[in-house]
Amino acid sequence: MANGNPTLPALLGPVQSAGQCLLFLLRMLAGIRPRLDLIQSTLQQTYLIGARSLVIIMICGFFVGMVLSLQAINALEQFGASDQVSLLVGKSLFRELGPVLTALLFAGRAGTSITAEIGLMRATSQIDAMQLMAIDPVQRVALPRFLAGLISVPLLTAMFNALAILGSVIFAVGVAGLDGGIFWTKLQTGVYFGKDFIGGVWKSLVFGGIVSLIAVYFGYTSKPTGAGVGTATTNTVVLSSVLILIFDFILTSFFV
């Protein structure tokens, strides 16, 4: 049966990879203990991949807020409802654009860096050296980076949202001449903390987990060559981006 169907191996490959990736996740999670060195290295990685992504996230957030405001005012003006701009911007940002765009930017900025770093450690035998020193590289190298991604993405999403609202208010009030009081009132009364803001935070936590898991897994399993590390880095961005959009639909449909 298997020999007669050429599509079967092509289907089995991704399923097998997904299974190995989940086993890798379980292997990481099995090693979580309240150890001082794990806390220290997680904080260090949170700084390296999270805090250092802050500038790009803030710049992008600001301009996304401006352009959202611009388009919303153009559309709402036709119905005489341009004072509803903050409602539209707030809902779309907190529920969808904030978590999704932050995760996509994080995949490009930090996910690639994680994959390349771990892949290079494999190519230069540092992973082998750890195993020979009886140190588990999954716990030592992969776990802190995974946890750091999980912590960073929701925080970065909050910063993205904050800067997007700032960009939006600057355009709407400063450039388009809308009333500031109405802008803030509509935002306060129409956007709900639990449903809109916390829903987005849950999404960003899932996206952070997806990007970080893919980044550490592809780095850890990359071929120990220049081309191997390059391919793993590309795969991290491509697969992370696709999965973020797929999971966004699933989460929005069923949970948020």
Binding site: M121, S125, Q126, D128, A129, Q131, L132, M133, A134, D136
Partner: peptide
């Protein structure tokens, strides 16, 4: 294996220092 390797030292070809 990990317990066993605590009694083994290995010098790899390129040193493999943690960069």
């Amino acid at each position: 294996l990990y317990r066993f390797r605590r009694n083994i030292g290995v010098l790899l070809q390129n040193g493999a220092l943690f960069t």
